[in-house]
């Protein structure tokens, strides 16, 4: 088996440089690549284009990169919960492309499946459709949306083996598998790195062919955005 293991986040991101386009997995703060985000913040590169469903919160996740002004452009579906983001956006310091969530996921999927574009009804008749080709299939209008082209995809998985096979846990799966498929180079950080043979091939969510570098992450904070509970009966 090909060994994809690198020592840590710093080694995994060593050749990411200013001006690149990155995909970052996660939904809200759930399933985000915490180790790599911290390494990117420490590396201090800037002018990045980040494709991620959300932009973190003010002091966690991609919010940390925004605070250091490392992001030139965000491509996201929902960016609430981040005051610094809203400030940079309204002042024009930050470029933002808001993309319907299903379109975002499917543009990742298209890249991973080797398809240049998709057709989706999401956004027809809205400002999202401006400047885009519209095709009518069976009486309904669809927008042509292009597959993403990202230099790196950075994902977080629950388990992975040294060959890069990944298993996600619960709703921390979200965008991670489709982004893993979509990067020119894909980096996976995992909570549990195991030897080949320890994962059941039938249970693999992302085959190792899509993953170029993998490492055992550490010190996961796994912050909860909206802690909602019910009283014990």
């Amino acid at each position: 088996m090909i060994n994809k293991v690198v020592a840590n986040a710093d080694e995994a991101i060593q050749d990411i440089s200013s001006g690149m386009t990155l995909m970052l997995g996660g939904f809200g703060l759930c399933g985000i690549p915490e180790n790599c985000i911290n390494a990117l913040v420490n590396k201090g590169i800037d002018q990045l284009t980040c494709i991620s469903n959300n932009a973190g919160v003010d002091d966690f996740g991609i919010g940390l990169m925004l605070r250091k002004r490392q992001v030139k452009k965000m491509i996201s579906s929902y960016v609430g919960e981040n005051a610094e983001f809203e400030r940079q956006l309204l002042s024009g310091e930050l470029e933002v492309e808001l993309v319907p969530q299903g379109t975002l996921a499917t543009r990742c999927m298209a890249a991973g499946y080797g398809m240049p574009a998709i057709f989706t009804p999401a956004g027809v008749g809205t400002e999202v459709a401006q400047g885009k080709e519209i095709r009518n299939f069976n009486g309904k209008d669809y927008l042509m949306e292009m597959a993403f082209d990202a230099d790196f995809a950075i994902v977080k998985a629950w388990k992975g083996d040294t060959a890069g096979n990944l298993i996600f846990r619960s709703t921390a799966r979200n965008f991670n598998p489709v982004m893993a498929m979509a990067g020119k180079i894909t980096i996976a950080e995992v909570e549990h790195l195991v030897e080949v043979g320890e994962l059941d091939p039938d249970q693999i969510h992302t085959p190792g062919i899509y993953v170029h570098r993998i490492f055992q992450g550490k010190d996961y904070e796994k912050r909860i955005e909206q802690r909602t509970v019910r009283p014990k009966e």
Binding site: G28, G102, A105, T106, C108, W158, A172, N176, V178, R227
Partner: peptide, 24 residues
């Protein structure tokens, strides 16, 4: 469970018969 949230980012639970899948 921080890994188990809904689209409003609230912590939730699964039920017998639940299934989990990616965003696409």
């Amino acid at each position: 469970d921080p890994d188990l949230i809904n689209a409003g980012k609230q912590t939730i639970t699964t039920l017998p018969g639940s299934s989990i899948f990616d965003s696409a």
